[in-house]
Design a protein around this nucleic acid. Structure first.
Lengths: 179, 179
DNA sequence: TCTTTATTTCTGTAACGACAGAAATAAATG
DNA sequence: CATTTATTTCTGTCGTTACAGAAATAAAGA
């Protein structure tokens, strides 16, 4: 890792580690971290030498980041090489990540659970009643999560942050309403 | 997969798949799914034959589920074998999962980001100003997420569900307040 | 204490993903 | 159109993880 201040190195390394736990390739996460804290867009070669990874690896990882919608190509005047930059706003970044994770993880599960619940509805063997019931509550939960996501996503960032900050007070008032 | 109705098989297989995307071992996820829809606790042998996996695999996976706090051992009268059951309530289940994921993924990142931000604070090279600033907003975001988690977690399930259901209306009123 | 039964740990194998380096392709400039 | 430069795709290697089967350990009952 050349030409990076220590704190940046530590950050990038940790981000790579955490990415791995999130099911995201270490190099992909490192590049994202690097671009995120980089004021100017970087070209592939620069990314290579700063992180000390192979050119091909960078190429594939950048493509992955673009698939996620996290990084994009920009061109600098008088330079024919592709340059890359990350989404710069933190909230926007996690909005995109959340959307993508929902699309990849929640949505397919919702589809499958609905199909399974339908299948389960057809059988009336009392031995399966419990399984059926559990499946349905699971489906209900995923519907709720999905609904929650949609609502939060429609909010402008500022309001969402406020909603979170005031969350406990709001929730408490709901508790008393429900009672 | 023996002795399971088709819908249960489909559910278990899908859950295993999704587990893999979440960084959870496929067998672990399958066992969890099986236990979740099983009315009675199952012993290791039963899990083996229903899922068609090796005994040792089941043993390790069950230990993993216990580490997560998702499954526990129970003993049936007149049977010395260990039997296992999953948390049965969906909301409780995801509360536990959320807590564990926070502990493994958010908390360490928070610690690291704080350390990096402190490190960054020490340097006053203007070349690093942008990186420093980005790091700080990232930290701010993780603080916010953590705070949100704490608040939601303190709510009883019923209130949390209500809060989500009414989320958009609440949010809209906040928006007008903020204006 | 010996035997049976339950459970865990160990060991080897197979499958998969990450990644470097090479080769191939595509784009740009003279 | 040839040459340089940028980028992607291909190929092989290395390391990791999942997992089955075997061996070892532990617990219970005869």
């Amino acid at each position: 890792m050349k030409g990076l201040p220590p704190f940046a190195q530590h950050f990038i390394l940790h981000w790579g580690e955490m990415g791995a736990r999130w099911g995201i390739n270490r190099t992909v996460a490192q590049i994202q971290a690097l671009l995120f804290i980089s004021e100017t867009p970087l070209n592939a070669e620069e990314i290579c030498e700063r992180l000390g990874v192979a050119r091909s690896n960078v190429s594939n990882s950048l493509k992955e980041l673009q698939n996620w919608g996290i990084a994009k190509v920009v061109h600098l005047p008088g330079d024919r090489r592709d340059h890359f930059e990350s989404i710069r706003d933190v909230h926007e970044l996690f909005r995109v990540i959340a959307a993508e994770r929902k699309r990849r993880e929640i949505d397919p599960t919702l589809v499958r659970l609905r199909a399974c619940a339908k299948e389960a509805g057809a059988t009336d063997d009392p031995a399966d009643a419990y399984a059926k019931e559990q499946l349905e509550s699971l489906l209900g939960f995923f519907e709720l999560v999905s609904e929650f996501y949609e609502k939060m996503n429609r909010l402008p960032t500022k309001s969402a942050v406020h909603a979170i900050r005031m969350g406990d007070k709001i929730a408490k008032s709901i508790v008393s309403l429900v009672k």
